[in-house]
């Protein structure tokens, strides 16, 4: 009698444990899939061997790039500081204000005289994009989007050809 109730008790416990581990186990991917954006490596744009990384201080980069072909600025509603756009013929450089400094917000390639450090240029084919980067980034419509750390690389396609290559800063949401 005693033994049996102990047995029943024991099996109850074990069953409950199994249930819990089962339901806990299903949570696993949720926690581990969290840091997919940080798999090492970086996305940066190289211009004449100069690294232009997102969110970097723009001042030294601008100095090295010299006089832009054109320049525009925009204030955001109600805030001090200006979003600035510098045009260098073959690419645009956008900055955003961060306190005293301006930081790199976006780099947009304009023509096929430039390519990404990985070798992709405007006009390249869909296959080239997928072999240079990966097919995972396809948004299903017209673009490839890759995010690593602070940078999102966006490659927009038109008629299966690369029509725009953009590096953009990632802001936490």
């Amino acid at each position: 009698m005693k033994k049996r109730s102990l047995l029943v008790f024991a099996s109850l416990m074990i069953a409950a444990l199994l249930m819990l581990t089962a339901c806990g186990g299903s949570k696993e991917p949720e926690t581990s899939g969290d840091d997919s954006s940080d798999q090492g490596g970086k996305l940066v744009f190289l211009y004449k061997d100069m690294e232009i990384a997102m969110k970097e201080d723009a001042a030294p980069i601008l100095e090295a790039l010299g006089e832009p072909k054109s320049y525009t600025e925009a204030a955001s509603c109600a805030f001090e500081g200006l979003d600035k756009t510098y045009y260098y013929g073959s690419f645009y450089l956008y900055t955003y204000p961060d306190g005293e400094k301006d930081r790199v917000n976006m780099v947009v390639l304009c023509d096929d005289t430039l390519s990404t450090p990985e070798g992709l240029a405007i006009g390249d084919s869909k296959e080239k994009v997928e072999s240079t980067y990966s097919a995972d980034g396809y948004n299903g419509v017209n673009a490839y989007v890759y995010t690593k750390g602070d940078c999102t690389l966006t490659i927009i396609m038109e008629n299966d050809k690369v029509s725009s290559i953009q590096y953009g800063a990632v802001f936490e949401s």
């Binding site: 045009y87 948004n139 017209n142 966006t154 029509s163």
Partner: peptide, 12 residues
């Protein structure tokens, strides 16, 4: 107004 504002293509 000084320069034209760039018309950067958007994904969507």
């Amino acid at each position: 107004v000084k320069d034209d504002y760039p018309r950067i293509p958007l994904v969507s």
